[in-house]
Amino acid sequence: MTARKLSISVPPEVEETIKAAAEEEGKPVSTWLAEAAIEKARAATLRADARAAASELVAEYETEHGKLPEESRQRARQFLLEAGLLDDESWRAAG
Rank of each mutant, 00 (worst) to 15 (best):
R92N: 13
E16F: 10
R75I: 15
S90M: 03
R51M: 05
T17H: 12
E24M: 14
P69I: 06
D88M: 08
W91L: 02
K67W: 08
A59C: 12
S55I: 11
E60T: 07
I18Y: 00
E13P: 03
K27V: 10
A76C: 04
R42I: 13
L33H: 01
L85G: 01
Q74T: 14
I8D: 05
R92H: 07
E89S: 11
W91Q: 05
L68E: 06
A93P: 00
G26P: 01
D87W: 03
E13R: 08
T45S: 11
E60M: 10
A53H: 06
T63D: 14
T17Q: 14
A93W: 02
E60Q: 11
A3P: 04
R77W: 00
A54R: 03
P11I: 11
T31K: 09
P28Q: 09
A76D: 00
E23T: 14
V14N: 09
P28S: 13
R51D: 01
A52P: 03
E13K: 06
E56C: 05
T63R: 14
A53G: 03
E25V: 03
D87E: 11
Q74E: 15
L6N: 09
E23S: 13
E56S: 12
A41H: 11
A52F: 12
A53I: 04
Q78I: 06
A22S: 05
P28K: 14
E35K: 07
P12R: 08
